[in-house]
Amino acid sequence: MSTGRAQWRRRVPPWAVDAGLVVLAVLDAWINLFDEGTPLVWACVAIGSAGLFLRRRYPLTVFLLTLPMTVFMDVAVAPIAALYTLATSTRNRHLLVGCALLHAAAGTLAWPLSEAFTGDRTWTLIQFAYTLATASAPVLFGQLVQARHDVARQLKEVEEAREHERALHAQTVLARERAQLAREMHDVVSHQVSLIAVQAGALQVASKDPDAREAARTIRSLSVDTLDELRHMVTLLRASGGKETELAPQPTLADLQQLIANSGIKTTLTGELPADVSTTAQRTVYRTIQEALTNVRKHAPGARAEVRLWHDAHHFGVTVTNTAPTRPAVALPSSRQGQIGLRERAELLHGTFTAEPTPQGGYKVELRAPARSD
């Protein structure tokens, strides 16, 4: 029903509504006057009725123009329409009360004015109260319409704010997923492709069969290109990703032996972590070891590595140390995102990550985190 009324209002132009009110106001005045109107009275009727064309732009002025015709006759259309328009356009309650009182006073007065104070005072007071009650109706209804418009506008603003909030939340979730994808691509895919490139390079150098050497060269070249493309993808994803990212389930400490066996590096594993260390911490330790061994393969060929798990009363962590390389390193592209990712993982545990060269020409990385951190 309300939708039908709204469509009807949109179909009827405002000027047609105003013209209809003017006609009704003139008819109202003509019915009350019959043939007793003087030129002055009809002039007041004309001014007050025609002023309704301007009621939307000058509501207070139009209301004041209807007061003279209210004094001369008992009319309702013009002053009520003017009062309603004024009530829908202003928030000044004192002004509305004053206009209602002014309308009641004008409707109570009789023309000529000398007769207004010679009759029964009680009846005059009753008539004033009745006219004031009549004037209060369009004022209250106009204020109600204004409040309805305010509520509708506020609801629209709330809905727009919710839509904006939902869009921001979706963007945040997308950014976190991109950061997670970038981190896992670097930690998992880069690790495997780097291993392929290193092994292919070693095969290219060691093989005496020309076909095998060419195949190894091709594999190494494709691996290098793949690492380069991966670097661009990781950089692009990380540029639009968040920092704190929920990590998907990944290998834990139970997979360390397999990681070391597949690394192609002479590695010793010592120590252990507390039995109650969280799954998130286990993944972080695993990724730290994985990244450290990958860097040893890439930058320190022939080096040995030592992985030491440790814990005390307040902290736990892992230290990975490698010796100096025994042969020149194979040139491979680097995304330089590995240590950034490890520092981010350490921050998720409220810990620290350090990486520095050793006096013997090797390198050492260490993860340290509070014992009770998740």
Rank of each mutant, 00 (worst) to 15 (best):
Q282D: 06
G302W: 00
L269C: 00
V285G: 02
G264C: 03
I289L: 13
T268Q: 06
N262E: 12
Y286T: 06
D276W: 06
Y286H: 15
I289V: 15
V296F: 12
T270N: 14
A261Y: 02
G264Y: 02
R308K: 13
S263Q: 02
I289H: 08
R304K: 14
E272G: 12
A292Q: 07
A300L: 12
G271N: 09
T280V: 13
D276K: 14
A275K: 15
I260Q: 02
S278T: 12
A300H: 15
V307L: 10
G271Y: 10
T280Q: 15
Q282H: 04
P301H: 07
L293T: 00
A275W: 12
T279R: 13
S263T: 08
R304M: 13
S263P: 06
T280C: 09
Y286L: 11
K298P: 00
N262H: 11
G271D: 11
K266V: 13
P274M: 11
R304P: 01
G302M: 03
L293M: 06
N295P: 00
S263M: 05
A275V: 15
E291F: 05
L269G: 03
L293N: 03
E306R: 12
T267D: 01
T284A: 10
G302S: 05
T294L: 08
V307M: 13
I289Y: 10
H299R: 14
T267Q: 01
T267H: 05
V307C: 07
R308Q: 14
R304W: 04
T267N: 03
S278W: 04
N295E: 13
T270V: 12
T284W: 01
I265A: 04
T288L: 07
T267I: 01
P301Y: 10
E291N: 15
A261I: 03
N295G: 08
V277H: 03
Q282K: 03
D276R: 13
A281D: 04
N262D: 15
T268Y: 00
V296L: 13
V307T: 03
G264M: 04
N262M: 07
V277S: 04
V277Q: 01
I260S: 01
T288S: 09
L273G: 01
R297D: 10
A261W: 00
R297K: 13
V277D: 00
K266L: 08
S263W: 01
V307S: 09
A292I: 02
A303P: 05
S278V: 09
L293H: 06
A303D: 09
L309F: 12
G302H: 05
A275P: 05
T268I: 00
I265D: 01
A292V: 04
A292G: 05
Y286Q: 09
T288W: 03
L293A: 02
L269E: 00
Q290Y: 05
A303R: 07
A300R: 15
Q290K: 11
A281M: 11
E291D: 14
T268W: 00
P301W: 09
T280G: 11
E291R: 10
N295A: 11
L309I: 05
S278G: 14
Q282R: 06
K266Y: 04
A300P: 04
E291Y: 07
P274W: 08
G302V: 11
T288G: 04
T279W: 06
A305Q: 04
L293R: 06
L269T: 01
K266N: 12
I289C: 11
A305N: 02
T267S: 04
E306N: 12
P274H: 10
A300W: 11
L309Q: 12
